[in-house]
Amino acid sequence: MPKLAIDPITRIEGHLRLEVQVDGGKVTDAWSSSTMFRGMELVLKGRDPRDAWLFAQRI
């Protein structure tokens, strides 16, 4: 049976892809992937800690 992909998942904040394995009309396995990466932890490294909230609230 086919593996279905639903991408983009809408009505959420962010980017998400779902893949599901369907056998005999039943989902037997599923995978989710977040399809966007920015690297906030890397950007925050070494900055003035008082600035952290400004970055972190924009996750």
Binding site: P8, T10, R11
Partner: peptide, 13 residues
Amino acid sequence: HETIMAPAGKAAT
């Protein structure tokens, strides 16, 4: 508009 639209997946695209 992904955040507010009803369709998802191929229908959205």
